[in-house]
Design a protein around this nucleic acid. Sequence first.
RNA 1: UGAGGCGUCGUCCAAUGGCAGGACAACGGACUUUGGAUCCGUCUAUGGAGGUUCGAAUCCUCCCGCCUCAGCCA
Length: 565
Amino acid sequence: MSEPEKIAPARKDFIREIVEEDIRQGTFGGKVVTRFPPEPNGYLHIGHAKAIHIDFGVAADYGGRCHLRFDDTNPAKEDQEYIDAIQRDVRWLGRDWGEHLYFASDYFERMLGWAEELIRQGKAYVDDLSADEITAHRGTLTEPGRASPYRDRSVEENLDLFRRMQAGEFPDGSKVLRAKIDMASPNLNLRDPVMYRILHREHHRQGNRFCVYPMYDWAHGLEDSIEGVTHSLCSLEFENHRPLYDWFLDQLGVHHPKQIEFARLNLTYTMMSKRRLLELVQRGVVRGWDDPRMPTIAGLRRRGYTPEAIREFCRLIGVDKTNSTVDIQLLEHCLREDLNRRAMRFMGVLRPLRLVIENYPEGKSETFEAPANPEDPAAGTRAVPFSKVLYIEQDDFREDPPKQFFRLAPGREVRLRAAYFVRCERVKKDERGNVVEVVCSYDPATRGGDAPDGRKVKSTLHWVSAQHAIEAEVRLYEHLFTKPDPDDVAEGQTWLDNVNPRSEEVLQGCRLEPALAERPAGFTCQLERLGYFCVDPDSRPGHLVLNRTISLKDAWAKIEKKAKA
RNA sequence: UGAGGCGUCGUCCAAUGGCAGGACAACGGACUUUGGAUCCGUCUAUGGAGGUUCGAAUCCUCCCGCCUCAGCCA
């Protein structure tokens, strides 16, 4: 018997190749353990989604496990709010860390022990230099550094001093513990890096138990080692830190994971820096971390993105070491593809224009069955009420239609989706000359939307019945930044000058078909011809708020744009 | 100009000495009761110069360009 046919494996990226080779060689006993190690100092964004996809994905592919570990080594920046939000977001993305939820701060005690061991080995010392002096002693990219005058203190003195640092005898900034490596190393990270700084600051989980806190380079490898991580996946900027990661673990002789670096995600029209996202929140540029314009997971969720779309996006962009900027249209493509398959269809009018059918009986109304989703016949149909007075989209009528405009115009016949053909007989205007009402006639023989005589119309319009419609607030979005690269600024300007002033447009008085009433926050649908929308948590009984997740591809908009150019 | 890393269509990713391929975008067409969706087609790339080889994106040499590092942030 031959082996059962295997499904072609997913393309192998360089990380998976390394992992597979390690499994073949039995490097870590054939095991695969990864971790996603966020610092709880902000919300997760789409860039983290890529990392999560890699960290959890690699583990899953090889029957391993992935830990969620909070790298909470800096109490000055961290907060429980972020811990909660991060867990919610990772879970929402469909990832499960099982029992493996960890906190770096739970390892502080053991790290302190290892630090003392390093001191005893003569490989770490307490330095009294100020931060500025340490910087000055570090040298430059082309010149070696100079030894601190405190570099050769005795083991006993170092031990004593370090214990008194821990006991809180010294003020912030007065002393640090440094590794004694090589002040002349061409890799600046090896020029006696700081391991501990004094911080009299309450930690969100440890309270006031500690007043020295470990630095990333010292702590991270130990965290990985303690947890039995085999492959420590991180982004490219840590490449220069790998020799240090390795050095600490080698001195201690403990389990030594392999650090592998990959390129972080950049997206056009998007800012990925946590610090700057925080700034947008603090300045009130956006409504919060979960503003639908934010690239945060929380923002994407509120906007109406699905975990499936994000995961597919992560799959398509792949993993590499090349710095790259992905076109945001790829993300949007993944979104549309997913939503098109699943979203129920409804009709709604964003900017209502009154349409009266003069030969339709006063007071009459009838109901049409429209497909819930043409992509999915199993979804069935929905009932849409129709009557003499309707609303159509202002954009769907032109008194003087330009070339290639196929929608309604005086004398022209169009189809009202799932209802009748109507012909524009005349318009009514206000004193300023604006069209305020379109008067039409309808052909009763076209009921359901087809003409028995076989005549065609060039356009199908969406509509709602005025007396049956519900009102809603609809929020439309554009990219948060006006430039593909938000850092592309003129002299004297900053990235904040590239914030798109029209990134959010709030429309009141929109009209929706009644089937949309009372939908819960997060409900996603397509408004035909307009795009995908979802119910915003700002909705209140009687006041529905919809976010436009993404528009449909719009051929007419393209034609118009080209005509203008 | 020290060290580390990276250069393939406009963008992202394949091809691991043997016909440079896919996706997105763009453009054009078919179809359409969503100007949606779907389908078909077109376009464009190995940073440069040498070398090895029957054969190079791939191996070698040199050059060029870009990214990262001088936090008591991660």
